[in-house]
Design a protein around this nucleic acid. Structure first.
Length: 222
DNA sequence: AGATGATCATCC
DNA sequence: GGATGATCATCT
């Protein structure tokens, strides 16, 4: 693991230095062998980039760069130049929602400052041959935060009202709520239609691809 | 082709 | 189970 960057500019500089490299090159430098594919190693690219950028490893509920308050997100890019996948942000709280609002929400904090690192993501490109792109340090604009907040409030309203099982990925313009679990047998507690506790799949907030595509596109223009 | 719902690995 | 890291597999 590389030393943790002391400043935002140092982190960005280091990320820019990775641009143009292949995952095979970065894996070799880290002393690891790339898996044949990501089927059983879905977090492999993220962890490889964490190593190179000196992120704090582990499963702690803190930013990747605690001193800087920055979250690292790798994002798979297709031949179209746009994201191939939605971006997981955090697990959605389903109970104990009293006093929760956008201003103190976990998701707002997580998205306050993000280092996006695009990586070639087409499955017909061997993992080791995929290139890392130019990084982007991002905070939501006024408009972006308004969109996020509106979706979040709509989704949380449904959760509070016991309608979590009526929510589909089609709710929300830029933010969606989808299952986030090891499998369909992993259940957690939530509010039911009549306020009674029910068991349901854990859910996560995901950024839709058109939203992250716009973030990256804005970067290209500037 | 793109989006949705389901799933994989690891750590605690 | 829930946090971290996400992509897979299937359907439209």
């Amino acid at each position: 693991m590389q030393p943790t960057p002391k400043s935002e500019s140092e982190l960005l500089l280091r990320a820019q230095d990775l641009a143009g490299s292949t995952l095979g090159e970065l894996a070799e430098q880290a002393g690891i062998i790339p898996p044949p594919d990501l089927k059983r190693d879905k977090g492999w690219i993220g962890q490889l980039l964490e190593w190179h950028l000196g992120a704090v490893a582990g499963s702690k509920p803190i930013p990747d760069f605690p001193e800087l308050g920055i979250e690292l997100k790798t994002i798979p890019i297709g031949y179209s130049g746009k994201p191939l996948e939605t971006t997981f942000v955090c697990v959605a709280p389903l109970i104990g929602l009293h006093g929760l609002h956008w201003g103190n929400s976990h998701i707002r904090h997580k998205l306050a400052r993000v280092l996006w690192v695009p990586v070639e993501g087409e499955r017909d490109i061997p993992l080791a041959d995929r290139h890392v792109g130019s990084p982007l340090l991002w905070s939501p604009s006024i408009e972006e935060e308004q969109q996020l907040r509106q979706d979040w409030e709509e989704l949380m309203d449904m959760i509070v009202l016991g309608r979590v099982e009526h929510i589909t990925a089609r709710h929300g313009e830029v933010l969606q709520l989808r299952p986030k679990a090891a499998n369909s047998r992993a259940l957690t507690e939530a509010y039911g239609e009549n306020g009674q506790p029910i068991k349901t799949l854990p859910r996560g907030f995901y950024l839709k691809t058109h939203f992250t595509a716009a973030i990256l596109a804005r970067h290209f223009i500037l």
